[in-house]
Design a protein around this nucleic acid. Structure first.
Lengths: 342, 342
DNA sequence: TTGTAAGCGTTATCAC
DNA sequence: GTGATAACGCTTACAA
């Protein structure tokens, strides 16, 4: 590989001059010399060595991004998969690359620490942020640049971008109400979940705005699993017919699938006897029977917002925005219909 | 951040000595001095700067991995998502990190070229390799280390690891035969597809071994879509009842879903009237109704094999194996049953 | 056994 | 305007 020295020799100038035209210090070099250098570069096919540059400037133009936990077959996170792609793309547009790494699910900090200490990366992007996230506590203490896709319940403040689950679910419930539903239930996550909490809040908002009564047992909380959806519906079906919900908002497509599967087993036709809405627009959602109406997160925009904010964090811009909320959009398919006999 | 100089000063030795203990040149330094240095390192919390190391050794310990094309909602590739995770993990175990990048789907080479020229990475891992892949032609010509997850139809030879689709599908068909099926069809990919070709070969192998007649119209080729599965089944259902297949092997879970959806719409119960087998074990596969029997690729092992081979490529080991085939495993769920009335 | 010093490929501060 | 030259933090001949 040719180096800056080779270019200098070829162009008959000093390496300093080559460096000047490389970093286009406009006024520093005469347009004649500049031309010579450019031609020499072209001729010998020179590209600056990025490692040397990085050493000199003590940066890496690398952003660390930890792959979310070990993907199990039953809960591959379709949102994070797409997220990684668009994050990488946004990073590249800003002149960065993504260094993706893994870590033990229960002990992430040593890996982050190693990456910081060896000066492998300039910053981190976190995803799958949980309440009182230990990575956030660590990075805050280390005073290392990072940004999070998702909020947390910390006293400390940190920069994040998040999907506006509250607005999303509110819209979903408003849609069900506009269809004529009045008994709307929600299959939710446990109380501890932050994003789960916002989604439930959106549900409550919509009920309140429409002056619909709130029934505590219309919210059933469970894990992120198909089973949780089945169990929620099974409970609601034990209620007297006139009290059973006619529509269900699920916290996630996977949970929605559980509701749909259980409904079918109980002889209910989803999209006629029962309306169901999911969250995420998983790859298979559109091919379910019926196609699942769901809330799709704006992943490309999220990636861009994250990188834009991260640059501000790296440059320590004190005026920069610290939080951005991006609303999901409701993808309407065939899993919702007006309620029967109402 | 402390540097090697700080350690030297703290330990009262030269930086060369520090470097020796860092790279544990065993015999070079007395165990006493070594001890002093180690303590100094511990005391001031020193970690070598990886960029400086890389500059000196002219390597990066970074492996470039292009994110497979832009993920569309309807065909997120669940296999490659998991693959990326396990690849990253295997790379880390070998002292590398993954640099994930994106490129225009129709014009990848400039991006690869840039990464090579700037000396950003030591090698590449390719995935989603297609017949006569332009990236492979480019990398071969550039004589740059790489390895591919997936074979191609090139005259040139290159190192790869691949899933043994032939063996996998053969086993799937043997399983159907053992259940009593004799009219087994396959929803395949177009002729151009290499991996598709191997899977069809496995189908033929099994028929031949069981002396079952081959019927050309039992193989329907189509794109990687749900629609393709629907269309294949629609065709088979136009045949006289006694000629209709009682079991279908789909090239992919997505295609299998099409077959299942079309079957349901025609009043057929999958797992009773019709048996279906997929390929990939997509996240939703187990939650389909019925749970889909499918072939799961050995992704963790594939990642490890890839990295192991890549190290040999980087080190130019002439004796190293160039090709590894890893069989998938049949995950049996409820979508297959003995044929009715046979 | 340890230290001195050259050099990896850049950038940037000085002189000229 | 241009060119020496000193860093950046490390590894490794070569000397001592």
């Amino acid at each position: 590989m040719p180096t800056i020295k080779d270019v200098a020799r070829e162009a008959g100038v000093s390496i300093a001059t080559v460096s000047y035209v490389l970093n286009n210090k406009q006024s520093l070099v005469s347009s004649q010399t500049r031309q010579q250098v450019l031609e020499a570069i072209e001729r010998i096919g020179y590209t600056p060595n990025i490692t040397a540059r990085n050493l000199k400037s003590s940066q890496t133009r690398l952003i660390g991004y930890a792959w979310h936990e070990i993907p199990r077959h039953d809960q591959a996170n379709s949102v994070l998969d797409r997220f990684t792609y668009f994050l990488a793309q946004a990073a590249e547009a800003a002149g960065y690359h993504l260094l993706t790494f893994t870590h033990p699910i229960d002990d992430p900090n040593p890996v982050y620490n190693e990456l910081i200490r060896t000066q492998r990366v300039d910053a981190f992007v976190l995803a799958g942020t949980v309440s009182d996230d230990q990575r956030i506590r660590f990075l805050l203490k280390a005073d290392f640049p990072f940004i999070s896709f998702g909020r947390a319940h910390l006293n400390q403040d940190f920069p994040w971008v998040d999907t506006d689950g509250e607005t999303g679910v509110r819209e979903a419930v408003e849609y069900l109400i506009s269809l004529g539903h009045r008994r709307i239930a929600m299959a939710a996550w446990p109380e501890e979940s932050i994003s789960g909490g916002f989604r439930v809040a959106g549900y409550m908002d919509a009920l309140t705005a429409a002056s619909l009564p709130f029934r505590p047992d219309y919210i059933i909380r469970g894990e992120h699993s198909e089973q949780a959806g089945r169990e929620a519906l099974a409970y609601w079906l034990t209620l007297p017919p006139e009290e059973q919900p006619t529509a269900v908002v699920a916290i996630t497509d996977l949970v929605a699938v559980g509701v749909m599967n259980a409904a079918r087993e109980h002889g209910l036709v989803v999209g006629r006897d029962l309306s169901v809405i999911g969250f995420d627009d998983a790859p298979m959602a559109q091919y379910l029977q019926p196609g699942l109406t769901t809330l799709r997160q704006a992943i490309p925009e999220t990636g861009q917002a994250l990188i834009a904010m991260l640059e501000n964090v790296i440059n320590k811009d004190p005026l920069a925005k610290q939080h951005i909320l991006i609303p999901p959009s409701l993808i309407i398919r065939d899993s919702c219909a007006p309620p029967l006999n109402d």
